[in-house]
């Protein structure tokens, strides 16, 4: 049995990147349409908030340029989500609910390695990430932010925390698909994408109870608002390290629940198989 070394993992990422590039070259028309759809979809959400900020000259104490910075962060997160979540490996309830985990069982790799690597699509998924970088540069210039190495490291850590929260939330709700594959097949996309719009809301100026519930119960405030405020030097309630702690706790809970669900799955099995999505 082969060991999963960093080199082996990079090789796995490499084959998925190659497949992604091959798709872009071979099916250029569709690939470009996919990139466009991703970008339009994100721009629709962030531009709505930004247009409000322009019309009302800021939102709840955040200037329109600060709102733009927050939208840049949100777009970067969307970009990372698409780059690493290409084949329903983040919306894993689809794989579970459609009975497609069985495709993974026959691969001689640990399941978590397959799930981490199989969604990597850096070529067709990079659209929003690049737009996000562009918006970030513009907003940094307009806000005259001092970009130091520690600021960049902080940005990287917040992005990592945000991504961890997204994946952990998705896996946590996706465990329901182990128990009810039909009803919960789309639960991850409902939970993650259904609330995506909420993650673009600047929470500044809202009542404290709303802010608190949106960084704890439904952590949409940690998707863009909290990290953006912290990066702007005004970390909101609970302190600058809060998103990192929350990410770790949620990941632990999700891992526990997912393992429990897996145990149930291999005991009960799935009599459902749907040839949709990336699997036919």
């Amino acid at each position: 049995m082969d060991k999963i070394t960093p080199i082996r993992f990079l090789k796995l990422l490499g084959i998925y990147a190659k497949i992604d590039l091959a798709w872009l070259i071979r099916d250029t028309k569709y690939a470009i349409a996919a990139i466009t759809a991703d970008m339009i979809s994100n721009m629709s959400a962030v531009s709505a908030v930004f247009l409000i900020a322009i019309r009302f000259d800021g939102i709840g104490g955040m200037s329109s340029d600060e709102v733009l910075f927050m939208m840049a962060y949100s777009t970067l997160v969307t970009g990372l989500f698409i780059i690493f979540g290409n084949n329903n490996n983040i919306h894993v309830s689809r794989i579970i609910g459609r009975g497609q985990l069985e495709h993974m069982f026959i691969q001689p790799l640990p399941l978590h390695v397959q799930l981490m690597a199989s969604g990597f699509g850096p070529f067709t998924g990079c659209g929003n990430f690049l737009v996000g970088m562009g918006l970030l540069v513009v907003s940094i210039q307009r806000l005259s932010i001092q970009v130091t190495p520690s600021w960049v490291l902080t940005l990287f850590l917040y992005l990592l925390a945000t991504m961890t929260i997204i994946v952990a939330r998705s896996y946590l709700v996706s465990t329901m698909a182990f128990y009810s594959p039909v009803a919960a097949e789309e639960i991850s996309s409902v939970a993650i994408e259904g609330t995506w719009m909420l993650s673009t809301f600047p929470l500044s100026g809202m009542p404290r109870a709303i802010q608190l519930s949106l960084i704890t119960i439904l952590p949409e405030g940690l998707m863009a608002w909290f990290p953006a405020m912290a990066l702007l030097g005004r970390p909101p309630l609970l302190g600058a390290y809060y998103p990192l702690i929350f990410a770790m706790l949620l990941a632990a809970v999700a891992a526990f629940a997912f393992k429990k669900g897996m145990k149930y799955y291999v005991t009960k099995g799935s009599n459902r198989y749907l040839p949709y999505g990336f699997r036919r």
């Binding site: 090789k11 796995l12 490499g14 084959i15 190659k18 497949i19 091959a22 798709w23 071979r26 099916d27 569709y30 069985e102 495709h103 026959i106 691969q107 001689p108 790799l109 198989y273 040839p275 990336f278 699997r279 036919r280």
Partner: peptide
Amino acid sequence: NRTELWWDHPIIQSFEWKKVV
């Protein structure tokens, strides 16, 4: 009733994927 092939790729691409995995 299932396939391990990558739907939107030529067969040789699926074979190459298998080689790596």
